[in-house]
Design a protein around this nucleic acid. Structure first.
Lengths: 199, 199, 199, 199
DNA sequence: CATGAATGAGAGTTCATTCAT
DNA sequence: CATGAATGAACTCTCATTCAT
């Protein structure tokens, strides 16, 4: 089991991963321009040229991180299609489950999330993708009469993404709320509205 | 009336304003680091040393723009306190009016908004201020029983700011929607929720 | 005569010219790669960023020098067309005059010549141009029966350029021969050949 | 015959030769500085440290190629002394034979020739050697009255080398002319001159 | 005989900022 | 009020070369 001297995690791979991890940290905390290659390699215990052994440029590693984030996010999204024929209670919990998985994902990948969802120029595009996906789901459910017929679901999707965005920064990354709590609150707010229906 | 030799619109004031306007444009479009002083002064028909006649540093002019945005925003907020004792219909239109004034303000100051609400590190703090203000209002209305008692109004406020943020970028700044439309849709969504109550 | 404070040779112009002169020297002596911007500016009494005040890159200044050389060379060539209807003696001295002007030009611009005629990749193309020009002249004279009818004048032109090239390096730049001497020797060799016709 | 374990064509020798061949190609095409060790070893299917198994430095392999060229060239020259007492026709063909062998040699070793005759700093010295050798031959023949007495044979030799140089690049390496053709044209031009002697 | 991994040393370039006028 | 000219301080990136295996 495992060849001698060639086990996964060989030195080079480790160095590359170290650089990636540290770069994610630095980019997340300081943004693209304020992050220096010199800092990254120093923290990784390497010298500058080593960086270029693994990445062709500062842009390249940044893009790689964005790509990783986007890729994982898409993967997540694919496995979360809502199946039809649910009653209303199940719908709520179903939506909540989707939101939980997103918040959990963000929570598990805080650095990547900061980079790909907040810092990168591509963040806008990534969000557009999520909005499209959510819109699609909402429309299906709207057609099945679970939702009001007079709502513009794209606008709704934008609102939800905006809510996710804000809560991720202010509640999730500050450890003030858990993914579950956030998901439930969003469902509660968006499904039933603010209005006091008990006279 | 008017001081000798220093009437408003004198060369210096004009130059400073030209720089501010162009800087706002550039920062809004390219962000802080990608904006070069050399570009700003070139567009203003000046040379680099002139820049330092009016601003002590690149940081300083950026801060001045942020400050201007923040200041105007606070001024806006002050004039929009919700007075008590409204019936529900009036409440909706009252909230809408608040949102309209925000969207209008953003629309009228696109460059400043991009800078102060999306680009600056201080954006987070500015949003926090808005959230606090909204939360306050929502709590008052919640106590007056206009809103459901079981909602965490701070979370609601965050969601609303998130929605404003997203819609500003994707609908307002793209000229796809007007402040009125956006305000109404937000009110509609947040007040009544998605849930189909008919049938 | 001459405006105060704006006479030609203002500081900036002087700096640029200093850099150009020194750069020509350095490139001529050490070639493109071995020439360092740091050395050039040091010799000009400036710091590195100043270089970029006047030239956009190391490549750019090198190209500018090549261009200057090429431009001057073309100018020289234009003013040296051989007019028709000469008797043979006059032809010889006419050709000599052309060669003298070339050697003189090379002698007066040793650094530029080394760069544009020997170091630059573009040297080949520049020589091609000269060969074309010489070929043209030779062909005209061949048609006028001054030269043997059975010679391939392009080959002749290549030989002449080759001779000029070699003699420039080994006799002119070493101060062993003057332009006049070299021109006469070339005319003598190429016009009458090596063969001993006496006896 | 053949040492144990060290027969010619062993792995090491093959690798060294592969490197030499590829290096010659690269240096010839791109010059010294633009040729990267990394490129050479990649093309040879080796890694960088292997290079240093066979050559002590980039300079060293370049020198080795120059040396090889120079060595072969000297060897060629040694076997081409012109024996005395020829009549004029035989002289012409004798000279042609010498030139043919040079052009053939250059043609057979295009990469080495580009390096040793055109790229290397040492090219100048190598040419000086050839000029000396040719001068010597020309002087002997001049003393034997085959050539005009009033010619400076060193200058003639420089012209011939210049012609060889140019024609090698523009006619031989472009496959536009064969060694025979070039040799004959040179002999024709230099021996009899351009001048039209008929009528 | 060969390589994976790493580095010392340095090059070109950029930009906010300032001095002298 | 404005500018021509210059610079300090960095930064990204490259490449020949070497160590340990």
């Amino acid at each position: 089991m495992g060849q001698r001297g060639r086990q996964k995690g060989s030195v080079g791979v480790k160095s590359k991963e170290a650089i990636l991890t540290i770069a994610a940290e630095e980019f997340a905390e300081h943004g693209f321009h304020e992050t220096k290659i010199s800092t990254i390699v120093k923290k990784a215990g390497l010298t500058q040229p080593s960086f270029y052994l693994y990445f062709s440029s500062k842009e390249a590693i940044f893009q790689e991180l964005i790509h990783t984030f986007h890729h994982k996010l898409i993967h997540l999204t694919k496995n979360s299609r809502i199946e039809p024929n649910l009653d209303k209670n199940i719908l709520a919990s179903k939506i909540a489950r989707g939101l939980i998985s997103i918040f959990k994902f963000f929570d598990d990948h805080r650095h990547l999330t900061k980079i790909g969802f907040f810092i990168a120029d591509e963040a806008e595009e990534i969000k557009r993708g999520m909005v499209a996906h959510i819109t699609e789901n909402l429309l299906a459910e709207q057609q099945d009469k679970y939702f009001r017929q007079d709502l513009n679901m794209q606008i709704v999707a934008e609102c939800i993404i905006g809510a996710i965005e804000r809560l991720t920064i202010t509640k999730l990354f500050t450890n003030e709320s858990t993914p579950q709590q956030l998901a439930n609150e969003i469902v509660d707010i968006y499904l039933y509205g603010l209005q006091n229906t008990e006279s």
